[in-house]
């Protein structure tokens, strides 16, 4: 199983961006996936990284699907339910594509880093060049693959850019251990100079820890 940690080895079919998250997780650790959806990432981590995995998901259908497939998942809300976990309960707390949908992203981030020794956060980058173009030339709220919703039905109420997120981390004194920008297919664009990452990354993916 050790070779599964090497990024070059092809693995079973989880999304490429989820695979990048999985690559950040050390085997045999304790992991909480907040907003775990149907449990694809969590299931992958449990099976291939032997993690002690837990999930939290807002949608009832998602929770039921997870539990029915043997995962430990509760129905819960990142904004209100993280506070019930003890500090340092997990090695990693993952928040994949859920941050813009939270009511208080900063509080949630604080909770992630209280409950987990490390946090892995991914989000759509609102400074992605296609987003900028849609707004600049189209005059409409941008719709992209990472932001598929229309303005009136989007769950995303706190959109941000990669640079915004970096600023918040700096302000909160959070250590950025790894920062990746991902392309449209969720593949990593490698280590780009910062302004470029903010322009051509469709998603940001951060590995964070407390100071």
């Amino acid at each position: 199983m050790a070779d599964l940690n090497q990024k070059t080895v092809p693995r079973d079919g989880i999304r490429v961006d989820l695979q990048l998250i999985a690559d950040m997780v050390a085997p045999g650790t304790r992991v909480l996936d907040v907003g775990c959806g149907d449990g694809a990432l969590l299931d992958h981590l449990v099976r291939f990284k032997q993690v002690d995995g837990r999930g939290m998901e807002l949608s009832q259908a998602g929770v039921n699907a997870c539990v029915a497939s043997g995962l430990s998942v509760i129905q819960g809300d990142a904004d209100t339910d993280l506070q019930h976990y003890p500090s340092g309960a997990f090695d990693y707390v993952i928040l994949s594509q859920t941050l813009p949908a939270t009511r208080s992203p900063r509080d949630v981030l604080e909770q992630l880093l209280r409950v987990g020794k490390r946090a892995i956060v991914s989000f759509p980058n609102f400074a992605y060049w296609r987003v900028r173009m849609r707004l600049l030339f189209g005059g409409h709220m941008p719709q992209t693959e990472a932001l598929p919703h229309r303005w009136y039905d989007t769950p995303n109420i706190h959109l941000c850019t990669i640079d915004d997120f970096r600023d918040l981390c700096a302000e909160m004194g959070v250590v950025v251990e790894k920062a990746l920008s991902l392309d449209r297919r969720g593949r990593t664009l490698g280590l780009l100079p910062l302004p470029l990452a903010n322009l051509i990354g469709e998603q940001g993916l951060f590995l964070l820890r407390r100071k």
């Binding site: 998942v73 129905q75 339910d81 019930h84």
Partner: peptide
């Protein structure tokens, strides 16, 4: 009960059935 279990980092699943 779920909150109490979470607060001691127990292994818990919770489903509300429609």
């Amino acid at each position: 009960i779920v909150r109490a279990l979470n607060s001691v980092a127990a292994n818990v699943s919770f489903v509300e059935v429609e």
